[in-house]
Design a protein around this nucleic acid. Sequence first.
DNA 1: CGCACCATGTAAGCAGTTACATGATTAC
DNA 2: GTAATCATGTAACTGCTTACATGGTGCG
Lengths: 183, 183
Amino acid sequence: MRTSEAIGVTKLTATEGAVLGLLAMEGEQTGYDLLKVARRSVAHVWAPAKSQLYAVLPRLERAGLARSRSGGRDRGPNRHLHRITKRGERALESWLETVEPGDREGFYLKTFLGGLMSQEALVAHYRQFRVDTLEQLAVYGELEPTNSRRGHDYYHYFLLRLGIEQAEVALAWVDEALAELEG
Amino acid sequence: MRTSEAIGVTKLTATEGAVLGLLAMEGEQTGYDLLKVARRSVAHVWAPAKSQLYAVLPRLERAGLARSRSGGRDRGPNRHLHRITKRGERALESWLETVEPGDREGFYLKTFLGGLMSQEALVAHYRQFRVDTLEQLAVYGELEPTNSRRGHDYYHYFLLRLGIEQAEVALAWVDEALAELEG
DNA sequence: CGCACCATGTAAGCAGTTACATGATTAC
DNA sequence: GTAATCATGTAACTGCTTACATGGTGCG
């Protein structure tokens, strides 16, 4: 949120984007509910700590991207129901459509919220992920022939193999996904 | 370093372990050199920022795990040559041999330094990684049948597939690695 | 009676990034 | 000249985790 109210769009961090995305997907929620939702849906991609979530919500509110109201309960601690604002929706859309080369976490998060963006934007993310994966494979391809398989290199080679295999699977996956999304 | 000088062993964070590991592997180094070494070796597993490295080195020194001397150069900024101490070696060994369930980053880092630990400790790390991978697969196995492939689930399914395929590759990889290490 | 769940947060520390700041040496 | 490399750091954030703190509700 450190930037550019001047050009009318607020830049979001991943945490902010994720929370706004959940609010957009799920509607008005308490912090507690957001945590539960996150844990049973995005968890393998993004798993915020309780303290982190409760820190982000007021930040979003101060920036005018979300608003909260005290929710209908008389007992126990005040429930704060949070919802995304129009400004928040604009910021979310702009964040969702921004492709960041090399940002794998961002890719997972944004494509998890794929239903909130245009087809073109989604495809652009997948295409960038494909490029990133190819670059990763190229790095491994340079490393591999320099590995002597002796001394410390013996141990490094195991990890190199895992990296290569993971990248190859990712490449096959992204090609299939692109075929389906663009097909 | 927040703990237990009382029992004689200092617990290390991942960053501290990684730096001590590099010092143990490469011998006396400047911060600058450590950065370069890290970038051409561990980079795909652990890639510290410059500011991070320069912050850790004095921390290690204050804890008596590393020592530095002004290195032989008259010009430019002082070169600080860092080396691991006996205490550092003990702390490193204890960190290396500690298996942390579910800590994938830690697994990568520690097995990268596999040459610095016993065969048994190394195998224990791989075995735990196998268990973690199976657990991950079990989580995906529960998620998959609940996915409707409609609405937002349509987008989540892509990520679920990637997760499953990555985990399957990891499982095959760890089995092969264990066969080689235990064989 | 105790435990799990609802619901909110604060505090403290490390992890990691980007930007700022300085200044010498070496190679083109 | 100027760019890269050597070599050191500081400042300011955000991200993320663990531990602390509080208090009501509902179930067995």
